[in-house]
Amino acid sequence: MLMNSTAYLIPEHSVLFEEEIKKSVFITQLAHTPSINSAKAFIDQVKREHSAARHNCWAFVAGRPENSMMWGFSDDGEPSGTAGKPILAQLSGSGIGEMTAVVTRYSGGIKLGTGGLVKAYGGGVQQALKLIQTIEKKITTHLRLELDYAFVAIAQAELSRYDAIEVESQYTDKVVLIVEVEVNFADELTQSIINKSGAKAMVSAVENN
């Protein structure tokens, strides 16, 4: 499977937005969830916190923002299509990945109607998204370098030039380094080290588990 090497935005922190609409209180919580399991864990956590609420509706974009295979949503007892889908529409349209939204509703006894619910659930997430700060998630890969001691300084200079990080090292009769580098720079770094060592350094990709 080919890895998409394009960096994308993820939430830097959790946010909470609360509003009252026709005596119903809507509490929107957004959190960084880098997997479907972590998304479900966050949803369960909010449900426990607000176990007295009538509805805890949710949606998640657990991977890259455009990867619909990592999306999920639930109306949690609200009329079909009035909560989960509007929440998901806001998340998937934000361009931010690895994020889950849970909107808790404490009902005030006044019916909002399907249009009112769609507006309330989608609107709460829209407002919460305005509060969120993001960071860029860089896509990295690992390379294995095997070289003579004479080329270590050259290799380390190249690693520094491409912001590669040494994650493992082994110094025996030869030097073996495992380094982490952005996918976009991997080929360039590989070629550069091979060229500068006169093709005496061996560079290979490390299979990601």
Rank of each mutant, 00 (worst) to 15 (best):
M1C: 13
M3D: 12
M3Y: 15
N4M: 09
T6S: 06
T6A: 03
T6N: 11
A7N: 14
I10Y: 14
I10S: 13
E12M: 08
H13E: 02
S14H: 07
I21C: 02
I21R: 08
I27Y: 07
Q29C: 07
L30G: 09
P34D: 06
S35D: 05
S35H: 08
S35I: 02
A39V: 10
K40L: 15
V46W: 02
R48H: 14
R48Q: 14
R48W: 12
A52C: 03
A52D: 11
R54V: 14
C57K: 02
W58G: 11
F60K: 05
V61N: 00
A62C: 11
G63F: 08
P65V: 15
S68D: 05
M70Q: 15
W71T: 15
W71A: 03
G72M: 15
F73I: 14
D76N: 03
D76C: 06
S80T: 01
A89K: 14
A89R: 07
Q90V: 00
S92Q: 09
S94D: 01
E98K: 05
A101K: 11
A101E: 08
T104I: 01
Y106N: 02
Y106T: 04
I110V: 09
K111Q: 03
G113H: 04
V118C: 09
V118G: 04
K119C: 03
G123C: 02
G123H: 05
G124P: 12
V125A: 12
Q127R: 00
A128Y: 09
Q133P: 00
Q133G: 01
Q133I: 03
T134M: 01
T134W: 04
T141G: 10
T141P: 01
H142P: 15
H142N: 14
R144K: 03
L147S: 09
L147T: 14
A150K: 03
A155D: 01
Q156P: 00
E158H: 03
S160I: 02
S160W: 07
I165N: 05
V167C: 15
K174E: 08
V175T: 13
L177R: 03
E180G: 02
E182S: 01
N184G: 12
F185V: 00
T190F: 04
I193D: 00
I193T: 00
I193W: 00
A201D: 05
N208C: 12
N208A: 15
N208P: 15
